[in-house]
């Protein structure tokens, strides 16, 4: 049984708030730096995201006169909480997550949808033209990327025979062949995650040249800072989820490495986890660099014609793999 002090440490320090904050800011820096280097620019120094956050926290926080004050003020916090929670269900230093549950894959998928819904609510409650259009676009896009994302993530569950992320990771660690079966799903999930995080070519809800600041046009100060953090932590949690599901095999079982009587496997696994997440962030940045923004109809077209069909195809091969003698449920 974990003591209340331990729980507080988990929630606030590691892998909770503080770790996610620092890792999220680091990922934002990496994203911006790689993006800049690929565009022949110098890019920001490593403390820039942190400085931006502190600056925004100190800025005047304006609430427009006609907005729905409750929704306007508290939606960012709900999105923030929703996007942080899944980290406790994702394995980081061992094949087991901190608090594994039966069906935590479904809970994670659900919680990761909340930021998008929050954007819609923000757009609705802002009572302003640009946030409204941005919110509608965010909600419309949700129907495009959510289906392929869920289909591919669930395919991994089919292979492991469980809706628990920890079980999926444990299964893949024992039978790494499963990762090969999941390669198409990994690619689809990466693209869907790019859309989920609203990054180019899917940054339609905040297309600067069309609808100015998009959903967050009316936000300033602390609330804007929180929404930026939601983006950063969403990137970390999203890439951690993909790392646990699709790159789950690259993890060592407990007590694989013992040095002078101490089990150092958690440390090695933690380093592996950071490496896997950073690789995924790097790929997300590559996609952002390479393409122009799609129009909303083109985006939906793309998701339903290619991503969703690909997701179904992934599900099909996952079922075939499980049904064959190679990958029976252990």
């Amino acid at each position: 049984m974990t003591s209340p002090l331990d729980v507080a440490l988990y929630l606030l320090i590691f892998p909770g708030f503080l770790f996610l904050l620092l890792f999220g800011l680091f990922c934002e820096w990496l994203d911006r730096k790689v993006y800049a280097r690929m565009q022949n620019r110098v890019g920001p120094p490593i403390f820039q995201p942190f400085a931006d956050l502190v600056k925004l926290l100190g800025k005047e926080d304006i609430i427009p006169r006609n907005v729905d004050r409750v929704l306007f003020q508290y939606t960012p916090l709900i999105a923030f909480a929703a996007v942080m929670t899944p980290i406790f269900n994702i394995p980081i230093w061992s094949v087991k997550a901190l608090f594994p549950l039966q069906g935590d894959l479904l809970i994670t998928l659900y919680l990761l949808t909340i930021p998008t819904l929050a954007l819609f609510v923000i757009g609705w409650s802002s009572v302003s033209l640009y946030p409204l259009v941005g919110g509608f676009r965010a909600a419309t896009m949700l129907f495009g990327f959510e289906v392929p994302f869920i289909l591919t993530c669930l395919s991994a569950g089919v292979i492991a025979g469980s809706w628990s992320i920890s079980d999926i990771t444990a299964h893949l660690a024992l039978q790494p062949v499963g990762m090969l079966v999941l390669v198409p799903g990994f690619i689809i999930a990466l693209l869907a995650l790019e859309a989920k995080l609203e990054r180019t070519p899917f940054d339609i809800p905040h297309a600067e040249t069309e609808i100015v600041g998009g959903t967050l046009t009316e936000y300033s100060g602390k609330k804007l800072a929180v929404m930026h953090l939601v983006d950063d932590i969403g990137m970390v949690v999203g890439s951690s989820l993909l790392a646990a599901i699709f790159l789950g095999g690259f993890i060592f079982l407990d007590s694989s490495f013992v040095l002078y009587g101490t089990d150092i496997t958690p440390w090695i696994n933690f380093i592996l986890y950071v490496a896997k997440s950073l690789i995924i962030v790097f790929v997300l940045t590559l996609v952002r660099t390479l393409f122009a923004r799609l129009r909303i109809d083109q985006m939906l077209d793309f998701s339903w014609k290619y991503l969703a069909i690909g997701g179904l195809f992934q599900m099909f091969i996952a079922v075939m793999y499980v049904g064959s003698s190679v990958g029976g449920i252990p």
Binding site: M38, Q39, N40, E208, T289, L290, A292, R293
Partner: peptide
């Protein structure tokens, strides 16, 4: 490039 959200093209051509 910027109008269609492709900032990489913007940075390349302006360099």
């Amino acid at each position: 490039g910027h109008m269609i959200g492709w900032d990489t093209f913007l940075m390349y051509t302006w360099k």
